[in-house]
Deep mutational scan, measured.
Amino acid sequence: KELVLALYDYQEKSPREVTMKKGDILTLLNSTNKDWWKVEVADRQGFVPAAYVKKL
């Protein structure tokens, strides 16, 4: 499975999103959308801005 690194803190703004902290390592589930990537963090799945994460 592919992992991404959170480059910035992100606070979810809708139930479809997830909160992450800078430095978090997240499991990447889907990166087909260039703006929003689906990730899993702490047993929750949701979207984060693609610009806020980097593939490892």
Rank of each mutant, 00 (worst) to 15 (best):
F47Y: 15
T32N: 13
A50H: 04
E40I: 10
R16F: 13
P15N: 11
D24P: 00
V41K: 15
E12N: 08
V48F: 02
A6K: 00
A6N: 00
V18I: 14
T27I: 15
W36I: 03
V39F: 00
M20T: 03
A42D: 14
T19M: 04
N30S: 13
K54F: 11
K21I: 08
V18F: 11
K34G: 09
R44F: 05
P49I: 04
D35R: 15
D43S: 12
D9H: 06
E17M: 06
L29I: 14
P15F: 09
Q45W: 08
D35F: 15
E12Y: 05
E12P: 14
V53Q: 01
G46F: 08
T27H: 10
P15V: 10
V53T: 05
D9P: 06
T27A: 13
E17V: 05
Y52M: 11
R44N: 06
K1E: 09
K13G: 08
A51C: 14
V18L: 15
D24E: 11
W36T: 02
T32D: 15
L7H: 03
E40W: 08
E2A: 12
E17S: 06
K22P: 03
A51M: 12
V4N: 01
E12Q: 13
V18N: 03
N33S: 11
E17Y: 06
P49V: 02
V48R: 00
R16K: 12
E12R: 14
S14L: 09
R16T: 12
E40L: 09
L3F: 15
N30V: 09
E12A: 15
Y10G: 00
E12V: 06
L5W: 07
V4W: 07
K38D: 04
G23P: 00
D43W: 08
F47A: 03
A50E: 03
K55W: 08
K38E: 14
K1R: 14
W36C: 07
A6P: 01
K54E: 12
M20I: 14
E12M: 13
T32L: 10
V18Q: 02
K1Q: 11
I25L: 09
K55E: 06
L3R: 11
W37N: 01
M20P: 00
V41Q: 14
E2G: 10
L26V: 07
R44S: 05
A50M: 05
K55S: 08
A50C: 08
K54V: 15
V48N: 01
S14I: 04
A51P: 09
I25W: 05
K22A: 13
A50W: 02
V41A: 15
G23Q: 02
D24K: 03
S31P: 06
R16S: 13
L56F: 11
A6D: 00
V39A: 01
F47P: 00
N33M: 09
N30M: 09
L26A: 08
K55A: 08
W36D: 00
L5C: 10
S31E: 15
L7C: 09
K38L: 15
W36F: 07
K54C: 15
T19C: 07
K54N: 06
K54W: 11
E40H: 07
L7Q: 04
W36Q: 03
Q11K: 13
T32H: 11
E2V: 14
R16M: 13
G46Y: 05
I25Y: 06
Y10E: 01
I25K: 05
E2N: 13
L3M: 12
A6C: 13
P15Y: 09
